[in-house]
Write a protein that binds this DNA or RNA. Sequence first.
RNA 1: GCCCCCGUAGCUCAGUGGACAGAGCGGCUGCCUUCUAAGCAGCGGGCCGCAGGUUCGAAUCCUGCCGGGGGCGCCA
Length: 550
Amino acid sequence: MAAEQTPDPLAVLRAAIEGAAARLDGDAGRRLTLERPPKPELGDYSTNAAMLLAPAVGTPPREVAARMREELVARLGASAERVEVAGPGFLNLFLSDGWHREAVADLLVRDRRAEPAGDEWVLVEFVSANPTGPVTAAGGRGAAYGDSLARLLEFTGQRVEREYYLNDTGSQVRLFAESIAARMRDQEPPPGGYSGDYVRELAEKLGSGADPDDLDALGRLGTEAMRTRIEATLSRFGIRFDTWFSERSLHESGGLEATLAELRERGHVYDSEGAVWLRTTDFSDDKDRVLIRADGEPTYFAADVAYHRDKIDRGAELMLTPLGADHHGYVPRMRAAFAAMGTDPDRYEAPIMQLVGIVEGGERARMSKRKGEFVTLDELIEDIGTDATRFFLLQRSHDTAVDLDLELARSTSQDNPVYYVQYAHARIASILRKAADEGRAAVAEPETIADAASAESALLAPAEPTERALVRRLLELPAEVATAAERRAPHRLCAYATATAADFHAFYRDCRVVGAEPGTEAARLGLCVATMRTIATTLGLLGVGAPERM
RNA sequence: GCCCCCGUAGCUCAGUGGACAGAGCGGCUGCCUUCUAAGCAGCGGGCCGCAGGUUCGAAUCCUGCCGGGGGCGCCA
């Protein structure tokens, strides 16, 4: 696409500011901002460049700003109506009709993906909840987060695979099998076992096809059944994994032994107290970690190290692994294991998800998989739907512990922010249907526009403050996506989607679209098309649908 | 005791060095003969946990303290 070559309207502004800054012989560096001022009287955009330059230049910020202003005016030419120095030394840019018209035209023809951040091969492992029960609401947060992260990275040009690590062997599976066996005999599960109703149901379903004395088989059958259920739940939630990686296969294939041997050969393994240890303290862990227990059984950690050896061998360059806060202590030892394998620990990245508390009727629901006391993701989806659930769970930073009040989520489902955003999308679709009915959509349809110049000649400049504000909001998408991806922060997209919808609703109030003056109508239809695409893209990155009617 | 996360409006939370600090929900008041009122506009609501420090400038960075959550297994 031709537009790919030309910088977008914001890049042009930024280049002008950087050029003006360079003339003053100052290095404003990366911290130079191009942002929307808090109030409309302060212009369309502002920059802090002069304030950053002041120390190096050696004159007060406002003086630097005054000198930069002249440079900037010259460089911006017809794009700017005027540039003002304000406050402590901000430069406020008031952009011209022409710039806004070009911006709308550009929005219509540009492929608005973020600048490729690289073409790294990223393996996102997420959820990976034990197949000894259904996915809980907390697991749903990890699911929504991991999937959105994967979508974000794909969008920014990375090669992404989604993987679920299935802990289908080990002590928890054994306990699960014992719990099933107990239910088959109409007994209570063993102490600390799984007492949820689903275990009873599973026992009934297995019925005569299973032998309560064959715990290996029960474990296998039980985890397979749970895996099927988990896959169905996540599929309903809009998530598909490329790979379901079985821990048991790691034991059976000898991968675990091979990794152990490799670590021993590298000199990081020692025997003590009947167990086999990895000297993770050589790589800044608090204490060494057991790989093989005194009873001869490998630990979960040993299998996980072997699993990551496998990821590395498969060619994964970045291994992104969102973990629940209850596993955060695990990160240093895994980084140490990477170092012990001679691999850069930075290739292992584990964003920590804070916990989800479910509150119902003022009561905090207990979350224990073993006790069978938890709210499942299935229940959440049934209660408030996939879109609302995903938006709810993604709205807040993964770093923040959130309480989800189920009653509130249900009762106010109509006021849920996700509907606010979706409504804007549906509203635009309705306008476009109306325009099509009246045969007016042609000029705004992307297919009919060869390039920005042809679009521009057909459009009049947006004049209303609210339509200009909407244009500026839409231009932010690539930067927002890039930031969200870099910071592993999909919640920023929720905020952006909400702000975009708000700007659209204000535009809708002020600006008649169908039936306006021809050039204005064309420009506004173009703005509607661009807004609809922006919202659809943003919601798509969150895994939320963008309906044409509501 | 040590480690991680969080203390921002009545509630749930955005805001990782810039202008008088924001959104949603809840409360109050207006707005549908015109492209969707799941909307818009307005009012009310704040010692940004506390105390120091760095900076021209701090909710944001540093230190200490207080409060909440999580973790410190040869469980996963």
